[in-house]
Design a protein around this nucleic acid. Structure first.
Length: 663
RNA sequence: GCCGACUUAGCUCAGUUGGCUAGAGCACUUCACUAGUAAUGAAGGGGUCGGAGGUUCGAAUCCUCUAGUCGGCACCA
């Protein structure tokens, strides 16, 4: 007779069942519909397949369709389905690690034992067809525990699996999963049979280093989607297409914002007039905001003596990512700056400083040059020349926390003006990697102290954050503000970095109240990171439909008939331009509908001003707001008041504008 | 940098297995239309097919190298 085990149901009732009872039996005893939608079971944190025996007592739970965890199980199961199909088509193919990810799954493959060509996307239809056959066959999926020796034997032909097994701790139980003729190493969390996997698609293939280490062999990572129902799969595919419509590279072309070309050089973007208008608006806004917060705006050279970066440590840490130094005739070595903190330190050091000068705040919109690896370059998000919204404040040690809070407040004020909410971002405290302290400034006490100070400040402000080891700069820990982009990536928007190292390196000091020299702390901060990345972010966020205050062209003036109304249109154009608005006069000899369409679709301008006989007579314009087909005739002064108000409050009143038009 | 794919007019894309002066739509120019809220009609100009080398009687189509772009990986002060 089998032993009894005790399982605790989700409602806390306890049940005694025979060991090796199958979860499906328990589910069926509760209700057939539950059994039908249960994907897998869990005992405590361990997965048990629906048709596998429960071995231990513990908390019992069924994972059912509709839960996020069930979707992960499905996607994880799809990796095995893919592998089985691939093994049939490529008998000698090897597999690395396959996992479920946010929108789907991937599996790393290596077919180099079989052919010179790795699996490529043109084979997807064939692979998908093979996967469908396996689904049709509804092959059971069963786990089994094996000894290390058995496992090594089973996977003797699979070098990557052997490597995984050899890295398992000695006491780890090894489980494998059998799916017909296919066997994989697996911890559990799979659907009962291949028939459960119905709606999937392979999407792309890309290189990926084995175990994520660039010294290792490169494998082919096959990405795919997998969903419970066809609607979700279609929605996923559609989302992939919509990404392209939002992509700043696509919109950048359409709206003529910027370009790059090989003649100028890879990763060196050129800002066209429309893009430059957006950027200039943001720069002007931020310089003014910084001024209000007691920052002094400065300019420092784009090239500096290389010794400056040797002294700062940048040369040691980032030499490979810096442009090669230029050597002048007289032997002086000049370096395109990758950062401007050393120059800002020189500004602080330019005169003796007193404690009365602190916090000493300077800021600069400066162009930085970094030798980004060719494979990393992408549109405006990753470039070799970028304009950094950089600022440095020099503080006494006891001022670190209040200054940190002040900077964070400035950042949040800016977010408010741009209409970002706390749903858009999360705070990351970035610490050094405790396992690899060699990468960083060598002073354990400093690190402990600084990391604790950041944490304390965040706790004081009552802000939620997460902690990330290994993300710190070499000179100190930092707060990074991570934004979710419209395309679903996460990137650093703002950063506040504590630095105890550079003040040492540059022997920074100020005279204290006691008349003695003291060592200050340097805080690096960026409110919007680089202009390139920030504008790319905004393009994607707004899908090119910039709020009026940022729009490259805030209104287009369209004469009904250029011959008859062109002069009047030009007058309106000139008046609004003179008053500070960005206006385009469309002087093409085209029909009204055509010009309106062009302004809406391509320029995505907020306001269209149509003028014809009637407007000429009334000294007015007929206004149409982007996204609405309502029009309203108003006096020019009236319109000007409206658009100026729109700009002045960072377009937060654009709802009001629409209401006005709808009257 | 690494793996893979791609690269044809300003833009978006066609161009069968290599074979006649390389195509379309949009954009641009010109002409006609006194044009009222998401594309008026007609005509015209524009590319040697990313670059270099090679195979061939013949290459946008095949091969090699190179540059750039895209999808990822690694990197990201």
């Amino acid at each position: 007779m089998a032993d009894l085990i005790k399982i605790t149901m989700p409602d806390d009732t306890e049940k005694e069942v025979e060991q090796n009872t199958k979860p499906i039996e328990i589910a069926e005893s509760i209700s057939p519909s539950l059994a039908k939608k249960s994907v897998v079971a869990k005992i405590d944190d361990h997965f048990v397949g629906m048709n596998e025996g429960i071995r231990f007592s513990g908390k019992f739970r069924l994972v059912t369709k509709g839960e996020d965890e069930a979707l992960k199980v499905l996607r994880h199961s799809t990796t095995h389905l893919l592998a089985q199909a691939l093994r049939r088509l490529h008998p000698k193919i090897h597999f690395g690690v396959g996992v479920a990810i946010a929108n789907g799954f991937y599996y790393d493959t290596d077919d180099s034992d079989e052919s010179e060509k790795q699996v490529a996307a043109d084979e997807f239809p064939k692979i998908e067809a093979e996967m469908k056959k396996l689904v049709q066959a509804n092959i059971p999926i069963q786990h089994q525990i094996v000894s290390r020796k058995e496992a090594l034997k089973i996977f003797a032909e699979d070098p990557y699996k052997i490597a995984l097994i050899n890295d398992f701790p000695a006491d780890q139980e090894i489980t494998i999963v059998k799916q017909g003729d296919y066997t994989d190493l697996d911890r559990g969390g799979l659907v009962p049979s291949t028939g459960w996997i119905k709606h999937f698609a392979l999407t792309s293939v890309a290189g990926a280093y084995w175990r994520g280490m660039s010294d290792n062999q490169m494998m082919q990572r096959i990405y795919g989607l997998s969903e419970w129902n066809p609607e979700n799969l279609e929605a996923q595919k559609k989302a992939l297409e919509e990404r392209k419509e939002r992509d700043h590279r696509t919109i950048g072309k359409q709206m003529e914002l910027f370009f790059t070309n090989p003649e100028i050089g890879a990763g060196l973007p050129v800002w066209l007039p429309n893009g430059a208008a957006i950027r200039r608006t943001i720069e002007d806004y931020l310089v003014e905001k910084e001024r209000q917060n007691s920052y002094m705006n400065v300019y420092t050279p784009v090239v500096s003596n290389l010794d400056l970066y040797k002294r700062s440590g940048h040369w040691d840490h980032y030499r490979d990512d810096m442009f090669p130094a230029m050597t002048a005739d007289d032997g002086e070595q000049l370096e395109l700056r990758p950062m401007n903190c050393p120059s800002h330190i020189e500004i602080f050091e330019h005169e003796p400083r007193s404690y009365r000068d602190l916090p000493y705040r300077i800021a600069e919109f400066g162009q930085m040059h970094r030798w980004e690896k060719s494979g990393a370059l992408t549109g405006l998000s990753r470039v070799r020349e970028m304009t950094l919204n950089d600022g440095h404040t020099v503080v006494a040690p006891e001022q670190v926390e209040p200054e940190f809070k002040g900077i964070l407040q400035l950042i949040r004020d800016v977010y408010h003006d741009f209409g970002f909410t706390d749903q858009d971002y999360r705070f990351r405290l970035s610490y050094r990697d405790p396992k690899n302290t060699k990468k960083y400034y060598d002073d354990d006490a400093m690190w402990e102290h600084a990391q604790a100070a950041l944490k304390r400040a965040m706790d004081d402000m009552g802000l939620d954050y997460f902690e990330a080891e290994g993300e710190a700069a070499f000179y100190g820990p930092k707060l990074d503000i991570q934004f979710k982009t419209a395309l679903g990536n996460e990137e650093t928007m703002s950063t506040i970095q504590l630095d105890f190292l550079l003040p040492e390196r540059f022997d920074m000091k100020y005279t204290g109240e006691d008349g003695k020299d003291h060592r200050p702390v340097l805080i690096h901060r960026g409110v919007v990171g680089t202009m390139e990345r920030f504008v790319a972010f905004l393009i994607e966020k707004y899908k090119g439909q910039f709020p009026t205050w940022l729009a490259p062209v805030q209104a287009v003036v369209i004469p009904v008939n250029y011959g008859a109304h062109g002069d009047y249109a030009r007058n309106i154009y000139s008046k609004l331009m003179k008053d500070g608005r960005r206006i385009k006069l469309d002087n093409r000899d085209e029909k009204l509908g055509y010009l309106i369409r062009d302004a809406q679709v391509n320029l995505k301008t907020p306001y269209i001003l149509v003028v014809g006989d009637q407007e000429l007579r009334d000294n007015s314009v007929t206004v149409r707001f982007r996204g609405s087909d309502q029009t309203k005739e108003m006096k020019i002064d009236e319109f000007e008041e409206m658009i100026n108000d729109d700009v002045a409050n960072y377009s937060k009143g654009s709802e009001k504008v629409r209401e006005m038009l709808n009257k």
